[in-house]
Nucleic acid binder design. Structure first.
Lengths: 116, 116
DNA sequence: AGAGTATGTCGTATGTTTACGTCATAGTAG
DNA sequence: CTACTATGACGTAAACATACGACATACTCT
């Protein structure tokens, strides 16, 4: 196991990292923004809007779906993806908490507040 | 070039993805939390607090440093890492904006508001 | 049924990340 | 100067991510 030594970290850290990973590719960021901007849940139109092959887009969609950040519902021939706004709001809180924690300190530059 | 087709996405999307990638590993999340919790900028003590070898921790530190999320200053024999709170605040805003955009929609479940 | 369309799965080539041992460097202390 | 400590750089093996073409499935329409 020379990889993924994710055990031994807190659940909180692992969860944050997992979601961050989902956002760690421009295509997935773009997908979420797309789904947010269109009220209607589009399907394979997503693929058409991105500069990637349909196969690759499907792959990104599956990744987001695996984390339940988006949901897919079959509607006849097409598939309808929508944001899981409920979960997104939770994630939002999680990130907000993390950043709040990380930004409380004083600015630390050359000769600044930090005690180095 | 079968990888990193990050061109063709907006600067905003790329930037968000870049930072998300930095947070996409529990060790890096832990490092930032550690630096935030200790007022003083510790150095290789970080390695001692994490369940990873010193080499690996250094690698994660370099990754965070490459994005300028943390700064390292040599103080004699030890090195002093501190959060770049200035930049972190910017990133915080960026994520806040993204999530604000993503969470405005209605909840979309089976038979819910979305027009599928 | 048969043609056509929308999706997802599979295989695969290539690039990237993770983790770590070993070595080189540089300051510290005796 | 010599031994010692703290760091980072280098090399490397294994796991993972990305991108995509080709195939399989399933629904629609005539």
């Amino acid at each position: 196991m020379t990889y993924a030594k994710t055990t031994a970290f807190t659940q909180e850290q692992q969860q944050l990292a997992r979601v961050a990973k989902a956002l760690a590719h421009p295509a997935r960021v773009a997908i979420i923004q797309l789904l947010a901007s269109k009220m209607t849940c589009i399907s394979g139109d997503i693929a058409a809007e991105l500069p990637l092959s349909r196969t690759t887009v499907t792959q990104h969609l599956q990744e987001l779906k695996a984390l339940d950040l988006i949901r897919g519902e079959i509607d006849g021939l097409t598939v309808c993806y929508c944001l899981n706004t409920e979960l997104l709001r939770q994630v939002q809180q999680q990130f907000a908490g993390f950043f709040a924690e990380a930004t409380v300190g004083p600015v630390c530059g050359p000769g600044d507040a930090c005690a180095c």
